Amino acid sequence: MDPFLVLLHSVSSSLSSSELTELKFLCLGRVGKRKLERVQSGLDLFSMLLEQNDLEPGHTELLRELLASLRRHDLLRRVDDFEAGA
Score class of each variant (00 low, 15 high):
Gly42Arg: 03
Leu76Tyr: 04
Leu50Tyr: 15
Leu20Pro: 02
Ala84Asp: 14
Ala84Trp: 09
Asp80Leu: 07
Val31Phe: 08
Leu55Thr: 06
Ser41Tyr: 05
Leu23Lys: 00
Ser14Val: 04
Leu49His: 01
Arg72Lys: 03
Val39Asp: 00
Asp44Lys: 04
Leu36Arg: 02
Arg77Ala: 11
Arg72Cys: 01
Ala68Met: 14
His9Gln: 15
Pro3Cys: 08
Phe82Cys: 03
Glu61Ile: 11
Val39Arg: 01
Glu83Gln: 08
Met48Cys: 12
Ser16Ile: 03
Ser14Tyr: 03
Phe46Asn: 01
His9Gly: 13
Phe82Leu: 04
Pro3Ser: 14
Ser16Tyr: 03
Thr60Pro: 11
Gln40Asn: 12
Ser14Gln: 13
Val31Ile: 10
Leu76Phe: 02
Ser16Asp: 07
Ser69Tyr: 09
Lys24Arg: 06
His73Val: 10
Arg34Tyr: 11
Val31Arg: 01
Glu22Thr: 12
Leu43Trp: 15
Ala84Arg: 14
Leu23Val: 05
Leu75Gly: 00
Ser12Tyr: 02
Asp74Val: 00
Leu55Glu: 06
Leu62Ser: 05
Ser17Asp: 12
Glu22Arg: 12
Leu62Glu: 04
Leu63Glu: 00
Arg30Gly: 03
Ser69Leu: 08
His73Lys: 08
Phe46Leu: 06
Thr60Leu: 13
Asp81Pro: 00
Pro3Leu: 07
Arg72Met: 01
Ser47His: 15
Arg38Ser: 11
Gly42Thr: 06
Phe4Trp: 08
Gly32Ile: 05
Asp74Tyr: 03
Glu51Lys: 10
Val39Glu: 01
Val11Thr: 04
Thr60His: 07
Arg34Asp: 15
Leu62Lys: 05
Gln40Pro: 01
Val79Arg: 00
Phe4Thr: 02
Glu37Ser: 11
Leu8Lys: 01
Val11Ser: 02
Pro57Thr: 10
Glu37Tyr: 06
Gly42Phe: 12
Thr60Ala: 05
Phe4His: 02
Lys24Trp: 02
Val11Leu: 15
Gly58Asn: 15
Val6Arg: 15
Cys27Gln: 03
Ser16Pro: 03
Leu70Phe: 00
Leu63Met: 06
Leu26Tyr: 10
Leu63Thr: 02
His73Gly: 11
Arg77Tyr: 06
Leu43Lys: 07
Leu49Arg: 00
Arg71His: 15
Asp54Met: 14
Val79Ile: 09
Phe82Lys: 00
Ser14Asn: 12
Leu76Thr: 07
